[in-house]
Design a protein around this nucleic acid. Structure first.
Lengths: 343, 343
DNA sequence: GTTAGCAGTCTTGGAGGGAGAGTGCTAAAA
DNA sequence: TTTTAGCACTCTCCCTCCAAGACTGCTAAC
């Protein structure tokens, strides 16, 4: 029983994980014997399983049941997988084609990316909006809606768009507003919020009001990273047998609706590239203890980025998840880089 | 057994519906006798119930069970309710205050409205974006992102904002783009899509490209009414006991995610004001057969409008639903009118 | 180190049965 | 004619029990 993780034991572990991921049913020694040619009897496999259980790679729901992988088992599996994770080229081609078909709008791209990942991994996928470290003012526009109300449209770096209604104490004409906009654009274009507030200008009361609003929105934008990510395919995730009980399902829905967990789950601006996998109990957040995340940052390192990933039960197809997330983050990075280059 | 719907029978029906809405449990004659002072014995109540069943107002899950309202029963109840539906004034005050606290942005208002309704009725609520009959071009803006790519920002009537990336064959400077924008704004501002396409102008190839894109987006905007409504509180709806089974729950989630049913459920631009209630089998759509909708149009009649409503099991608190939808549509109408007045 | 054999354990599903809830009917009372 | 009491009847719900089946763990032999 000593000898450590021999190749056959490793193979048994891999088989158990593969089977369990596919079927959600505890895996029996007999089934392994029948379906895989290991060249040894069920009894031997049982011995190996006893070892794996002792070492904490697998566990049993009850005394006389097959085995299911533990977090540690999944972790081992994921590590051993690390290299061999590319989507089949036909799949890559199909995805690329989908992106060509959709109109050139960033939000569409994000939604599409999330939808594709959800479909590939058959669980929920999410994508956050790409955000620069500190956004810069590209352009300000003021449109009169009626005498006292104007629509302010703000174009920030990375084509982020903001709008807000402004109401003035005095009546304002479109000419006046255009004048404001020109003046402020000339002075503040391409600056970030701190640079703008440092640079004092002589402004009328109304101009100042506009400026305050602009600053407010830019600061708010700098602060929230994960504001309203796109979440797709929740129903795919909830269709998995682990969420069969009603209250389990509802608590997951609640979790997703509040999106509080995002903050704790996605480390903020972690600089490392590549796909990260967080398995079950490895999560900081209590409520995520039996869920796994596979995600990656995307964007232009050091300049702008977002996060993209999937969330699902610990019994998740990590192989597919890793390859999908890896490939999609590459695609989105390319797209962001394309938009960025003009900066 | 002949005499028709006597006042007492009507009272019994109302009690049954009220109890069933509150508890989701079939209502027994004995329970009615105990909890309500009708002045008659359970046996008499049973006779009345027999009548109500014969007339199709109520039904029994099985021979020896209490009764549950049928669609016809709910319909009768809703009609009889028609007048007495106002939210308590404290509630109205609280809601108004919430709207004052949120920033002046239309999308926020819509989300808030949906969230409030979901909370009040404890089921899913949805709100569509307000759309003018035919949108008009308010303002066009072009921002250079890099040499060959520009961001086009379109402000349409009712403060609808659209953006799209444009890529040109030639390099373009910001000055050139601003020139385009000024020219096109001068010519086409305040026109709708048909007027724009009727009015021919001498345009360069690039200007023409921009114009095409503008027209495409305006036409698309005219066509989709119900594009991506806000849906809130799905989890409240799915928490109801009628969705206890897993597959029931999943099919509802699928339904909501695809949002196909919206088209059939909300009659397009129906001119009648006021709250409409569609109960269970009254729905055209097969898949909605055991759901009810309570909704209303909002906006400025004949000019601009959207829809707002709740969806839930037929066992829905119609009273609360009707008052909430009615009040919220009023609020949104006021807000739209405010933005509209400047047109 | 591997294997066959077998006892032991735990889950699952179905049958059976009793308790309880609620009605429908009948005949008498108001 | 309407209302009521009484009671038999039906159906659900839940509990228990039991048998079948699925796997393992152990032991002793290979």
């Amino acid at each position: 029983m000593l000898k450590g993780l021999t190749p056959r034991r490793e193979a048994v572990l891999k088989i158990i994980i593969g089977e369990y991921i596919a079927t959600a049913v505890p895996v029996a020694s007999d089934a392994i014997f029948r379906n895989y040619q290991l060249g040894v009897s069920p009894a031997t496999i049982r011995n190996d399983m006893a070892y794996l259980e002792e070492e904490g790679y697998i566990a049993r729901p009850h005394t006389s049941a097959g085995s299911v992988p533990t977090d540690k088992g999944y972790r081992h599996y994921v590590e051993s997988l690390a290299k061999e994770v590319e989507l089949p080229t036909e799949e890559q081609y199909r995805i690329r084609k989908l992106f060509q078909e959709v109109e050139e709008e960033f939000e569409r791209w994000l939604k599409l990316a999330a939808a594709i990942m959800a479909r590939l991994v058959r669980t929920a996928a999410l994508v956050t909006f790409p955000k620069p470290r500190q956004c810069r003012l590209r352009h300000l526009e003021l449109v009169a809606l009626h005498e006292f109300v104007a629509l302010m449209v703000l174009v920030l770096s990375e084509a982020i768009l903001k709008r807000q209604l402004l109401s003035f104490d005095k009546p304002m004409t479109q000419e006046q507003l255009t004048g404001f906009a020109n003046k402020l654009n000339a002075a503040y274009s391409e600056l970030n919020s701190s640079e703008i507030s440092a640079k004092t200008l002589e402004l009328s009361a109304e101009e100042n009001q506009v400026m305050e609003a602009v600053l407010d929105m830019m600061v708010a934008e700098d602060e929230i990273e994960y504001y309203q990510p796109y979440l797709e395919g929740l129903r795919l995730m909830l269709g998995q047998p682990e969420f069969a009980q009603k209250d389990r399902m509802l608590s997951i829905m609640e979790l997703m609706e509040t999106q509080e967990w995002l903050r704790s789950a996605f480390p903020r601006w972690s600089s490392d590239v590549g796909v990260r996998v967080i398995i079950g109990g490895e999560n900081q957040d209590e409520t995520l203890r039996d869920l796994s995340l596979v995600f990656s940052r995307y964007g232009v390192p050091g300049r702008v980025g977002g996060a993209i990933g999937v969330i699902g039960p610990t019994r998740m197809d990590y192989r597919q998840a890793i390859s999908a997330v890896s490939y999609m983050s590459g695609i989105l990075s390319d797209l962001v880089a394309g938009v960025c280059r003009g900066d």
